[in-house]
């Protein structure tokens, strides 16, 4: 598979998988207003996924966007492992999204300067959305961190668990390096400093402790995931796989 295709699929997969998690919140939000907010985030993510899959489909020249989304298996997905982590309670969802939103905000900002015109345009659009997502998740991390003792304890635990998935953001493998050399891709390593600052600033306001860097999960760039992805894909892909000849 060519590098541009892989690079694009990584972005598309990440949005799709997190979108799936977000739509699990539908009708389960802590307030009705927040239910709508979570669905809006889901819609933005699916819109992003769709845009990047459409481009991937062009680059691939063979499979449609839907085929890329619904017919690839577990080892062919390249989303960050953090995206597939379960929602658990609202605090875990907000912390997961916050850590990822902060990275994507910096990432899309850089990608919007890409030599690849399509990726740049998709990144610009996604940047507007992720700016709002980051604002939303940041505000909730602060409310929950600096809310009650119970809420602080809950999100501290979420943060402690999810921290291991943040290492993947800053990896640069051969595909990343090739894309960077061509002026298409982003230097993920360069984003770490700013990301650290963004995170610390919010954690301080939220009265939360930044976890120590310990074991860092890795492997999604090669299609290595946590056990959650299999279940997520089984549910998501069931209909097209059960009715291969059907058009919907």
């Amino acid at each position: 598979m060519n590098s541009l295709l892989i690079y694009t699929l990584r972005i598309a997969d990440c949005s799709l998988v997190l979108g799936q998690r977000m739509c699990e919140w539908c009708s389960k939000g802590p307030t009705l207003e927040e239910d709508i907010a979570l669905s809006n985030i889901g819609l933005d993510l699916f819109g992003q996924a769709n845009g990047f899959y459409e481009y991937a489909s062009k680059v691939d020249g063979n499979k449609s966007a839907d085929e890329l989304a619904f017919k690839r298996n577990e080892r062919e997905f390249y989303n960050f492992q953090i995206s597939e982590q379960k929602n658990e309670h609202f605090g875990t969802t907000m912390v997961r999204n916050f850590l990822r939103d902060a990275f994507k905000y910096l990432f899309y900002n850089e990608l919007s300067k890409s030599n690849d015109v399509t990726l740049a345009a998709l990144a610009s659009k996604s940047l507007k959305e992720v700016k709002y997502h980051l604002r939303h998740s940041t505000n909730w991390v602060i409310r929950l961190g600096d809310g009650t003792n119970e809420s602080n304890s809950k999100v501290q635990q979420s943060l402690n668990f999810l921290w291991q998935f943040t290492g993947e953001f800053f990896e640069m493998d051969d595909v990343d390096k090739e894309m960077l050399n061509e002026g298409i891709g982003v230097d993920n390593k360069k984003l770490k400093g700013t990301w650290d600052k963004l995170i610390i600033d919010t954690l301080n306001k939220a009265k939360l402790k930044k976890p120590e860097d310990g074991y860092m999960a890795t492997g999604s760039k090669k299609g290595i995931h946590t056990e959650h992805l299999g279940f997520l894909l089984a549910e998501m892909q069931y209909l097209p796989r059960a009715y291969p000849d059907a058009k919907w």
């Binding site: 819609l43 769709n50 989304a69």
Partner: peptide, 20 residues
């Protein structure tokens, strides 16, 4: 979560969101 296409997924989510 089981909608059979990206388009169908977005449309259904938008619809249910409208109900809220």
């Amino acid at each position: 979560t089981r909608a059979p296409s990206l388009r169908a997924k977005m449309i259904l989510l938008a619809k249910v969101q409208d109900e809220a």
